[in-house]
């Protein structure tokens, strides 16, 4: 039996339909250009406006693979809903839970500071911003750098892996070849290089100041604390 036959049989009876992973949500790798199977995501098959008999739209938790905690958390939310303890699940226009996919990778990335200062990695293995190596983080909706991959460990750009946009409906065709700098990013990273380079210089001055102990801590017999007796 084909998967679409399973869907035809099960979907009409379902309280809710959840699509898990980018293949199930938007087609993903197996629906890439030139595929011989005609694979597609659940909303493309059932229709984007499809609602379950309980009035719940298709719930999409994309990601290739989907983040395990994003998945179980969404199931949990639906269970709360099913028992009347939570309101309708808030979804965005691509049917993703808003609290998970509202922010971009970049907004949650601990390397965004390098971007802001116009400091870009030119080789893999560098701790700096990966945008020039092919990272799509600034425009991809995903919480992985924020959440880590398991128990806060791992992730993508936060640990040295370019974001290839695996949670996005345009994945993979619109992101390939993955290892080239995103064409749209050239202008913004150039602007950041100019502005950020200046900011970085200013910050270097401040950092150098802060990176030294206050001047009254020094070798010698006299114990100074910076205390000044006030006399009235």
């Amino acid at each position: 039996m084909t998967t679409s036959e399973w869907l035809d049989r099960l979907a009409p009876k379902a309280l809710a339909v959840m699509a898990i992973g980018t293949c199930a949500t938007y087609g993903g790798i197996h629906a890439m250009a030139g595929n011989p199977t005609g694979a597609m995501g659940v909303p493309d098959y059932l229709g984007w406006d499809w609602k379950s008999k309980a009035g719940i739209p298709i719930v999409c938790v994309p990601g290739c693979p989907t983040h395990p905690d994003n998945l179980s958390e969404t199931i949990l939310y639906l269970l709360y809903m099913a028992t009347g303890q939570a309101p309708m699940i808030p979804l965005d226009d691509q049917l993703r839970p808003q609290w998970l996919f509202g922010a971009t990778v970049h907004e949650g990335c601990d390397r965004a500071g390098y971007y802001e200062q116009g400091d870009f990695a030119t080789e893999y293995g560098s701790p700096k911003c990966l945008v020039k190596l092919g990272c799509w983080g600034p425009v991809v909706k995903c919480n992985v750098p924020k959440r880590g991959w398991i128990n806060g460990v791992g992730g993508c750009p936060n640990v040295g892996g370019i974001c290839i946009g695996c949670t996005m409906p345009g994945f993979p065709d619109k992101f390939m070849p993955f290892m080239d700098e995103p064409p749209g990013g050239k202008l913004s990273s150039a602007a950041s290089t100019a502005y950020g380079g200046f900011i970085r210089k200013l910050r270097t001055i401040t950092t150098n100041t802060l990176n030294k102990e206050p001047k009254w801590r020094e070798k010698g017999r006299t114990l100074k604390t910076g205390y000044k007796a006030t006399t009235f």
Binding site: P65, Y124, V144, W149, I150, G154, G155, C156, G160
Partner: peptide
């Protein structure tokens, strides 16, 4: 995940 970023599709292998 410490070494390859993500399980099961690594983010840091090239």
């Amino acid at each position: 995940c410490l070494m390859e970023g993500r399980h099961v599709h690594p983010s840091t292998l090239y």
